[in-house]
Write a protein that binds this DNA or RNA. Structure first.
Lengths: 149, 149
DNA sequence: TTACAATAGTTGCACGTGCATTAAACTCGG
DNA sequence: CCGAGTTTAATGCACGTGCAACTATTGTAA
């Protein structure tokens, strides 16, 4: 009556999650902690840098962060001086969030570090393999995000 | 003075983490929630199923879960009747954790579901590509886990 | 214009987590 | 045999998170 065993070292979800957690942990502790930032905060900053100022709802959609969590996170980021909040001129419900000069400066310092972490993680993987890997990961995400399982 | 942009759709750590989170979310909400389990709890059960009864310290090492968190988690799992706790006969500090019959039964039901989720995630990826993908992920983990960065 | 619905954001609350501390049991050198 | 140091587990505490409820503003249909 033993349960069917599941070899974790061959189980794809585990392998993916494990690397994801390790990645977040390393980058979070070695680089972001000095700035008082979490990975989620870092992701918000990157999205703001790439896509420009955003309403909080849209920011939540782009980062998959809950609206209430994001509200408090933006408060913290604002307190750190990295982002600014201002109510929309056209719709008084909306809050527009944008990077400050200090936020952009923080990104200028962090992005190269992030790239180094990527290089460390990908050491020993060829360019071609890396391209395949990324393609597979994007496919997997689409497989999971779609409303059918 | 714009910060150097980081294209998230080509940034490996983001791609990996995103899939890892999606995987955990889907499996957690669609399957584990019915049993009152979290992914971390599920992982503990799988490790117990594969490696047999373990001391809490070793369980923490195998699952990368903090000792204090694990202590409380085992309390919850024990309350659910899925694992049993008993003090070691040889060392009175140690607590041995092992699956109960109910725990093994839960695994028998969950493992096939987990395999289905893996199949959904990996849809459209060939056997050869899948093998490469797993190999790359194991390598990445070693790159990150090793004490040099 | 006036109700009713939808949307954006914030806050109350319960919960799980990690860190630091504590308690108990064991190890080992003197 | 004794005492310092180590190991294992449990607990106090602060914090971030998600869900649900709530407020404020805007959209819409009669």
């Amino acid at each position: 009556m033993r349960p069917p065993t599941l070899n974790l070292d061959e189980y794809l979800p585990y392998l993916v999650n494990r690397v994801g957690v390790a990645l977040a942990l390393r980058f979070g502790k070695d680089a972001l902690a000095r700035y008082g930032l979490s990975i989620e905060m870092w992701r918000v900053l990157v999205v703001l840098s790439n896509n420009g100022g955003q309403r909080q709802v849209d920011l939540g959609g782009l980062t998959s962060i809950d609206a209430s969590t994001l509200s408090r996170m933006v408060t913290r980021l604002s307190r750190l001086g990295l982002v600014g909040r201002r109510r929309s001129a056209t719709d008084n419900r909306e809050v527009e969030v944008a990077l400050t000069a200090k936020g952009r400066a923080a990104l200028r310092r962090l992005v190269p570090t992030a790239r180094r972490f990527e290089a460390v993680a990908a050491a020993g993987i060829s360019r071609a393999e890396l391209a395949d890997l990324k393609r597979a990961l994007r496919l997997m995400y689409r497989n999971l995000a779609l409303p059918q399982g």
